[in-house]
Design a protein around this nucleic acid. Sequence first.
RNA 1: UCCCGAGUAGCUCAGCUGGUAGAGCAGCCGGCUGUUAACCGGCGGGUCGCAGGUUCGAGUCCUGCCUCGGGAGCCA
Length: 432
Amino acid sequence: MQDIMRIGDLPKAVGQSVTVRGWVMTTRSSGKIGFLVLRDGTGYLQAVLPKAELPESVWESFKQLTQEASVAVTGAARADARAPGGVELTLTGLELLGPSLDFPITPKEHGTTFLFEHRHLWLRSRRQVAVMRVRHEAIQAMRDFFYQRGFVLVDTPLLTGAIGESAGNLFETDYFDLGKAYLAQTGQLYLEAAAAALGKVYCFGPTFRAEKSKTRRHLTEFWMVEPEVAWYDSQDNMRLQEDFVSHVVGRCLDRRKEDLKELERDTAPLERVTPPFHRISYTDALKKLEGLGASVEWGKDIGGDEETMLANSFEKPVLVYNYPKKAKAFYMKENPADPRTVLNNDCLAPEGYGEIIGGSQREDDHDRLLARIRQERLPEDAYGWYLDLRKYGTFVHSGFGLGVERTVAWICGMPHVREAIAFPRQMHRLRP
RNA sequence: UCCCGAGUAGCUCAGCUGGUAGAGCAGCCGGCUGUUAACCGGCGGGUCGCAGGUUCGAGUCCUGCCUCGGGAGCCA
């Protein structure tokens, strides 16, 4: 009876005869010796077939193997420097479990259109496997961070009435007798309610934006992690962000080194991601941009190109704070020191990745919030419950939202967010 | 929605000022005892995105449409 093992556990089985099941990545043969590289999700394994030492039937099966066929192989595990992974298997048995004819993704180049049309199969490639592992690690690190700090996970609704940030296009759907429902683009407002119950809370889930944006930074469905903390002001909020981001990046560096190597990620810029981050006010950022030869009119949001320029002038993430009130959402707290601005901040990742976090201290004054809602011509009755939070024991509180795909793309050093999620949703892509 | 760019073999692409379709890889056949996207030889493979126009003749020029990519706006 053979032990059935996962490739990742093979270093512990050197000297033993084992069976491994997986998918064929490539086969090579030089007539009297054959090689077979296998993947099972825990690693890659090279199996060697010396023709002279094998039953004829095993050699015949080997010759018929094709890319991505599923197989069970049996052999002696052996340490060998020539094998990727350091351990290889000298085969004594080979069983074809599932044939695979004309696998579309060959070991040569492909265009992104073709690859995304075959995303369900592309996911099996080394690079994509590495990305998914880094994503998994980053998400686990996020959850652990909050768990360790006493945050409570609160799941916010994905189907909502007309509420949320003022701008942005929402996906809508019919909702029984209540008219239209909209897919959530943030859980923040609900989290503010939960923060008054539980103190430190966060939500983690998909969010939807029906914007017709076709850029390397946008998806129509993406994942966002949003903490909200009672009694935190904007300064506390920024400290939380730099601790959070540093923790996530550090964990990936620590535990997903192999995957980052597979992705050929230069980790030096990531090693520098430690608190404190740089801090610069919006107004000073404009001055700095002026010096770099780009001028932005005060009151306008900082555009993508300028944002990149700004972020690139720092060697680690930068927190840009106190944006003009008129460029920002209604719920952000007015800056008492300069009422033209609000107590918010963005976190810009270096290396051209730009905004990964948007956060703010929330307006906790009932009348001021109501005035802002009216100013923005938002449906007042829909915000009744939100205003209640300021009516019954209002409290200083702050929070932020971090874009998971943007963060993963940055950590992996990928040019586009769409590779940072298994099945990206974009304007022109709804399948697979 | 706007501004650029691209659609040619299963895939990645070449195809000049218009002259009747080409390479690499993949596939199939054969060879090779340590390969790392193995290598060497051979074979098959096309509605040139769609529709119309100019022309003796269109992959190539013109018009319209479709699809995709990049960017802008908006944001994470």
